[in-house]
Amino acid sequence: MDVFMKGLSKAKEGVVAAAEKTKQGVAEAAGKTKEGVLYVGSKTKEGVVHGVATVAEKTKEQVTNVGGAVVTGVTAVAQKTVEGAGSIAAATGFVKKDQLGKNEEGAPQEGILEDMPVDPDNEAYEMPSEEGYQDYEPEA
């Protein structure tokens, strides 16, 4: 019985440690998101679009440190934060509304985080759909 109880105690310690790591990862992701939003706020009209992409990228980098179902929630929060940063930029006159959601080359930025393969159960990952990809044929 002692062996059984000791095993359960060790398992509990492992769960607590994993929860603490997840909590730490979420806190880091939130900190990076805040950094990115402050970065966007300090940019001029020309830099705002690039700044919004930076927020998304920093958040995406930190999301990889967070495991399990938390990833889905962090990704949703990050996307809403990026959308909010863009709205703030438009409201303050840093950028025109028609410039939001495009990178410096004018290509749409939507789907940055949505296409990231995420499995809350950590069982399997699927690649994003290939609808947006084109076949590449090298020139002879």
Rank of each mutant, 00 (worst) to 15 (best):
M1N: 00
M1I: 00
D2C: 04
V3E: 00
V3T: 00
V3A: 03
V3I: 03
F4M: 03
K6S: 03
L8C: 01
L8P: 00
L8I: 04
A11Q: 00
K12D: 00
E13C: 07
V15M: 15
A17Y: 11
A19C: 04
T22K: 00
K23H: 04
Q24M: 15
G25R: 12
G25K: 15
V26A: 02
E28N: 02
A30F: 14
A30C: 07
E35M: 14
G36S: 14
L38H: 03
Y39P: 00
V40C: 04
T44L: 10
T44C: 13
G47K: 07
V48N: 00
V48W: 15
V49Q: 09
H50D: 05
G51I: 15
G51H: 10
A53P: 01
T54R: 15
V55Y: 13
E57P: 02
E57W: 06
K58H: 09
K58V: 09
T59C: 13
Q62H: 07
Q62C: 08
N65M: 07
V66T: 03
V66G: 02
V66M: 12
V66I: 15
G68A: 11
G68L: 12
A69H: 10
V70M: 06
V71E: 02
G73P: 02
G73Y: 08
A76W: 14
A76Y: 09
V77F: 07
A78K: 04
K80Y: 14
K80S: 06
T81D: 01
T81R: 03
V82M: 11
V82I: 06
G84T: 13
G86W: 15
A89M: 10
A90Q: 11
A91T: 05
T92K: 02
G93D: 05
G93C: 03
G93F: 08
V95G: 08
V95W: 14
K97R: 13
K97D: 15
D98T: 14
L100P: 11
K102P: 14
N103C: 08
N103F: 06
N103D: 12
E104I: 07
E104W: 05
E104C: 02
Q109F: 10
E110R: 09
E110S: 07
I112H: 09
L113T: 09
E114A: 03
P117T: 08
P117W: 10
V118Q: 02
P120M: 08
D121Y: 12
N122C: 06
N122E: 12
N122Q: 08
E123G: 10
E126K: 10
E126F: 07
M127Q: 12
E130C: 07
E131L: 05
G132A: 11
Q134A: 06
Q134C: 09
Y136D: 02
Y136F: 10
P138N: 04
P138V: 09
E139L: 05
A140I: 08
A140Y: 11
